[in-house]
Simulated assay, not measured.
Amino acid sequence: MSFAVTQPEQYFITKSTPYVPNSPLPVLVYRSALPLHLDPTSTCTTFEPKNWIKGGVFKHYSADHFHSVTHECYAVFRGHSRLLLGRGPLDSEDRDGLFVDMEVGDAIVLPAGVAHCSIESSDDYEYVGLYPKGSPRWDNNFCKAGEEETRTKEANARAVPIPDSDPIFGIGGPLVEIWTKAIHDR
């Protein structure tokens, strides 16, 4: 089965808040990157040979959170959602946040430390959450800890290694090059 793949969109959310570490690594969004007629099994078949492993199948998740021990990929196989990135529930509403619309066939890679949640979704919205092979099980940090704990989680997130494989393109894909450049440019 053939499908069109484009280079990922890049969104930098580098500025930390008192409750959210965010990351020097850009969020990557791959549009229409997955084959048609998706379900959890076919979605995993696309990613797992590229060393991104299924963590679960999820629906609308409105709780602002970030992971400090692993990067995460959402692969949308049903419906659509608007995500809010980079801001937690205790951050002021005028604080910068990024809204990203996700549809069937899209994938987003969230660097460790970047806050994310669904703010509105279709009733049928579902995605597979995938993690680099060998990563520890994800932790959920709900963007409500004090500044000292957030700085500790920030140090943890910055120490998460860059995966050796892009979730869409595999070895030699753009994620590794883009993220390596971001680390060297900071």
Rank of each mutant, 00 (worst) to 15 (best):
E72D: 11
G86T: 11
H37V: 00
D91F: 01
R82M: 05
L90W: 04
T45G: 03
Y30H: 08
A157V: 06
K144P: 00
L85E: 07
A63P: 00
G88Y: 09
N141C: 13
P161C: 00
T45P: 00
V69R: 15
A115L: 10
G146S: 03
D139R: 14
L98V: 13
P49T: 04
A75I: 07
S135K: 05
P21G: 03
P167W: 09
P24Q: 02
F77Q: 07
H116V: 01
F47L: 15
P40R: 05
S118G: 10
A107W: 08
G113S: 07
R151C: 00
S165T: 15
G134L: 09
G134A: 04
L34V: 13
F142N: 05
Y30I: 08
D123H: 08
K133W: 06
A33P: 08
K153N: 05
L28C: 01
A75R: 02
D39C: 06
A145I: 04
C143M: 08
L25E: 10
L38P: 12
D64V: 01
A159I: 09
N22K: 10
H37R: 15
P132I: 02
D96R: 13
H71D: 14
P35V: 12
A33E: 06
N141T: 12
D139Y: 05
E148V: 15
L34W: 12
D101V: 11
H37Q: 13
G86H: 09
E126N: 12
S122V: 11
F47M: 14
S81F: 01
G88W: 09
S135D: 03
P40I: 08
Y74G: 01
V57N: 08
T46Y: 11
G79F: 12
I108P: 09
T41M: 04
C44E: 13
N22W: 10
M102V: 15
S118T: 15
R78Y: 03
E48P: 05
E103Q: 09
L25H: 14
K54C: 09
N141L: 10
D101M: 04
R158E: 14
S23I: 06
S121V: 10
L25W: 14
T70Y: 00
V76D: 01
A145G: 08
F58N: 13
K59F: 02
S62M: 03
S121W: 05
N51V: 00
S121K: 03
L34R: 13
V160E: 09
S121Q: 05
C44G: 08
F58K: 12
Y127I: 02
L130V: 07
I162P: 12
N22C: 07
E148R: 14
L98R: 12
P40V: 07
A63G: 04
P163F: 02
A145V: 11
D94C: 02
E147T: 13
G86K: 11
T70F: 02
S118N: 15
G79Q: 11
P21W: 06
R31H: 06
L110E: 02
E103Y: 09
R95W: 11
S118K: 06
N156H: 12
Y127E: 01
P136V: 05
E149W: 06
R78H: 08
H65Y: 10
D91Y: 04
F58T: 11
E72G: 12
S121I: 11
L85V: 10
N141P: 00
P161F: 07
V76N: 08
A115S: 14
D164G: 14
A155T: 13
A155E: 15
W138K: 01
S32W: 04
S135F: 02
G97K: 13
N140A: 06
A159S: 15
D106H: 12
